Computed example of a mutant assay.
Amino acid sequence: MTETDISADTFVDDWNTWHALRDNTFREPLGWLSLTALHWLVDAYSTFPDLPGAWRADPDIVVITAELSDDLSVDGAAVDGSATITPVEGAPGIIVKHGPRLIEVIRRTGNVALRIHDSSAPALAQFSGIPTFTPRPEWVVEGVFTAFPQVRTVTTGAVVPGLEHHHDARGKISFEHDGTAYELIAFAGRDEGFHVLFTDATSGVSTYPAVRSLHVSTPTPGGGVVLDFNRASNLPCAFTDYATCPVAPAENRLPFAVDSGEKTPEGPTGRALI
C-alpha cells in the first residue's frame, strides 16, 4: 500500500472535522434517523394507521384523497378532496406535510412508497454518533483512474428485495494493497469526482454487510486519485430499515479487511444483517 505524504496533525484534524459533519448529518431533525415507516402503495386506495387520508399509485402519478381536517398539504396547498403528485424514478422524494411531520413520496424500480419523517422518532433521540475505526494515514491510498471509452450503466440490487439501482460508471480505479493490484468501478459523484460502493472482509463483521461508500475527488491530469478509506461511509440503510440503498456491485467486493472508516451503527439504529 502506498502512503501519501500527510502531516499527522493535519490528517487527524481534517478527519475529526469530517467525522463531526457526518454525525451532525444524522442528527438533523427530519433526516434519515427521523424515519418511522416505509409504506408501499398499490393501484387501489390504501390507508395506513399512522397516516391520514387514502393513497393510490398509478403508473405515473400518486393520488391522495383527504379531508381538510386531515392536515395534509402539498406545496403549501391543503389537500381538501384529492391531490395528484408525480414522483420521479430514483429522484429525491416529493414532500407532503402532515403537521410537523413530512411524508416523502418516492419512486423506486417503478414502485411508489411513502416514508414518514418525524422529529420525535426514537432512533433520532437515541443516536449517539457513528462508531468508527481509529483513523490511520496508511489507509490513505494512491490510485489511478482510467476512464471507460463511454459511460456504462451498472445495475445493482438494493437492500430492499426486488429493487434495482442504475449507476453511471465512469471508469476504474486501480490501486495496490500489500503488493497486490486491485480495481474498483467508479460511479459519477459530486463535484466532478467519483462515488465508489464497496464491501470488504469486515463487511457483516464490524461494518455494514451490504455496502460502504467512498467519495473520490477529481483525478489529476494523469489520472491520479486518492482513496482515503478512513472516510469509508455508511449509507442510510445502515441506520434505518426505511431506506432503499444500493448494494455494492460484484466487481467492488474487496477480499481483504478494510479496517478503516465507519463501523456498523450500534444499538437501536443499527440495521440487522441482510
Rank of each mutant, 00 (worst) to 15 (best):
S7G: 15
V12S: 10
N16H: 13
T17D: 12
H19Y: 07
A20L: 10
E28Y: 02
E28A: 15
E28Q: 11
G31L: 07
G31P: 10
S34P: 03
S34T: 01
L35Q: 05
L38R: 14
H39M: 09
F48Y: 12
P52D: 10
A54Y: 10
D58W: 03
P59R: 05
D60F: 15
I61W: 09
V62W: 13
V63N: 00
G76H: 07
A77H: 09
A78Y: 12
V79E: 07
G81E: 02
S82L: 10
A83H: 14
T84Q: 14
G90N: 07
G93D: 06
I94E: 14
I95A: 13
I95K: 14
K97W: 07
G99I: 00
R101E: 06
I103G: 05
V105G: 09
R108A: 07
T109F: 11
A113E: 12
A113Y: 06
L114S: 10
A121M: 13
A123P: 03
P135H: 13
E138W: 05
V141M: 08
G143E: 02
T146A: 14
A147M: 12
T156Y: 08
T156G: 07
P161Y: 07
P161V: 01
G162V: 06
E164T: 03
D168F: 01
A169C: 08
R170Q: 08
K172Y: 02
K172D: 02
S174D: 03
F175C: 02
T180Q: 10
A181G: 08
Y182E: 00
E183P: 01
E192H: 06
V196K: 06
A201T: 00
S203G: 13
S203Q: 11
V205Q: 06
Y208T: 14
R212P: 04
L214A: 09
H215A: 15
S217V: 01
S217N: 03
T218H: 04
T218D: 05
G223M: 11
G224W: 03
V225F: 12
F229I: 02
N230R: 13
A232Y: 05
S233F: 04
S233R: 03
N234W: 02
L235F: 09
C237V: 09
F239G: 11
D241I: 03
Y242T: 00
V258T: 01
E262N: 09
K263T: 02
E266T: 07
E266M: 05
A272L: 04
